[in-house]
């Protein structure tokens, strides 16, 4: 549903607003690097705007801090209705290294709903462009959760329940497999 909405609403271009709520400026520099002629995101119609009222997409960097959470919430509310929020960097995705510090509330999704995550500390400009491309439906996401489970016992298991017979004539049923 979100994808269809994206394709309908953001068919032509995304105007991004760049919000830092207490990060270390690492992700800021990478986002600005993605906007320079070297990566030239205006090819894809992505443009930086100075006010959240003009923006379709909010690029969040930095964790939600106690001092900036209200301002972040206000900036989110000021955006017009079909809006997306990108959490860029480890701080915005999960709170960063200092996620349990007294002044950090946590990831930005505790304050505003986040639609796309771009982890990295900081993410490369290519990673940011890739994340925006995933949101636009141009490429598929590469990541998937990995779960490793121990296989069902690689060698056959001796079990007393499979013993048949009595006395000296006890036979183990699955003897060939052992």
């Amino acid at each position: 549903m979100l994808k269809n909405l994206c394709q309908k609403m953001f068919g032509r271009s995304l105007w991004v607003y760049h919000a830092n709520s207490g990060g270390c400026n690492g992700c800021d520099i990478e986002v600005l690097n993605a906007l320079t002629p070297y990566y030239d995101v205006e090819r894809f119609g992505i443009k930086l705007v100075g006010s959240p009222r003009h923006a379709d997409v909010m690029l969040c960097q930095g964790p939600a801090m106690r001092s900036t959470a209200q301002a972040l919430k206000r900036a989110y509310d000021a955006m017009p209705a079909p809006k997306l929020v990108f959490a860029i960097g480890s701080c915005a995705c999960g709170g960063g290294l200092w996620f349990d510090s007294y002044s950090v509330i946590g990831p930005v999704e505790k304050i505003i709903p986040v639609s796309y995550y771009i982890p990295g500390c900081p993410p490369r400009p290519e990673a940011i462009i890739y994340g925006v491309a995933v949101a636009l439906g141009l490429v598929d996401k590469k990541t998937a959760p990995v779960a490793f489970k121990e296989l069902e016992l690689p060698i056959p298991q001796y079990h007393p329940g499979d013993l048949r017979g009595e006395g000296e004539l006890v036979v183990y049923e699955k003897a060939e497999k052992v």
Binding site: L2, Y116, P119, G120, E126, A127, V134, A135
Partner: peptide, 10 residues
């Protein structure tokens, strides 16, 4: 590094 996703559990 291209880890952009819509679900953080990925």
């Amino acid at each position: 590094f291209e880890n952009g996703t819509n679900q953080i559990g990925d």
